[in-house]
């Protein structure tokens, strides 16, 4: 947790991961993803934006190693080590029988590290997501937003090179969602993590990311990539700025094309 990587300007970032012509076909018939090329650089905040069925979650599962590509390759610069990856699902996905601290301990526990050895890192991760006061709470005692924060703390506690987020805030109310969006950006500013964020919200993707990858369905594929060059930190002023509105318009248009092509 202590290594805070600086986020370099786009164009100067080292390559972290590359998807080369990745195909995924289910049951030999359903083409979930066709020839996806994507280069992920260190410090990127990439949103995969698209309608349902566009393969954005499939792409995430492939990167996470939960499924193998039918064709193509996924290459990690310098190879993939344990703890290189943190994942946040749409659900908080916490173990209900374990306390908040024990849930965040899980990635370390699986590597055989005792709670005592990593207590500091767990506390640090919980502080980062604003839950420093709740290490001993059980998930059921927390609100939906707080559970999601625990999930984020678990994803970043190992200081991973890449964090995958699969529509993490989709099930939350709008107010909580905006708060978590702001906090996520603050968090990223602090620890300089690389994020791939799946969403179906144009506004969320433009607010959060510096790269928006627009995808279309049937077959799932990338149709466009937009660069959102607004500087971080982004806040309410950005959310209401003409630049934000302009980026949203471009992204919406790209999404509209994606929908047409699918139809």
């Amino acid at each position: 947790m202590t290594t805070n990587r600086p986020i370099l300007p786009m164009g100067q970032r080292d390559r972290l991961l590359e998807l080369q012509g990745v195909d995924k076909t289910f049951n030999g018939a359903v083409v979930a993803l066709r020839r996806m090329n994507l280069t992920v650089n260190e410090g990127d905040f990439i949103s995969l934006l698209g309608p349902s069925g566009c393969g954005k979650s499939t792409a995430l599962r492939l990167i996470a190693g939960l499924a193998r590509p039918t064709a193509g390759r996924i290459l990690w610069s310098g190879g993939q080590g344990t703890g290189d990856l943190g994942v946040v699902f749409q659900e908080p996905t916490l173990m209900p029988w374990a306390t908040v601290a024990q849930n965040v301990w899980l990635p370390f526990r699986l590597r055989g590290q005792s709670m005592a050895a990593v207590r500091g890192q767990i506390a640090e991760a919980l502080d980062l997501v604003g839950l420093g006061a709740f290490p001993d709470a059980y998930p059921r005692e927390l609100s939906g937003g707080m559970k999601m924060r625990v999930s984020i703390a678990r994803a970043l506690v190992t200081n991973p090179r890449l964090i995958l987020m699969d529509e993490p805030f989709a099930a939350l109310d709008e107010i909580t969602r905006q708060k978590l969006n702001n906090d996520l950006l603050t968090l990223r500013g602090k620890i300089g993590c690389t994020v791939i964020f799946v969403t179906h919200s144009v506004f969320e993707s433009v607010f959060l990311s510096d790269r928006v990858v627009v995808m279309a369905a049937r077959p799932g594929r990338v149709i466009r990539e937009l660069v959102v060059d607004a500087p971080y930190p982004r806040d309410l002023a950005y959310r209401t700025s003409p630049a934000y509105a302009a980026h949203c318009t471009v992204a919406s248009e790209a999404l509209a094309i994606a929908m047409e092509e699918a139809a």
Partner: peptide, 20 residues
């Protein structure tokens, strides 16, 4: 999802059994 998480973190079979 927790099973997937276990796989991502490289959990062994007995660990998935014991912890999940």
């Amino acid at each position: 999802n927790l099973r997937d998480l276990m796989r991502i973190y490289g959990a062994r079979r007995w660990q998935t059994l014991r912890f999940l």
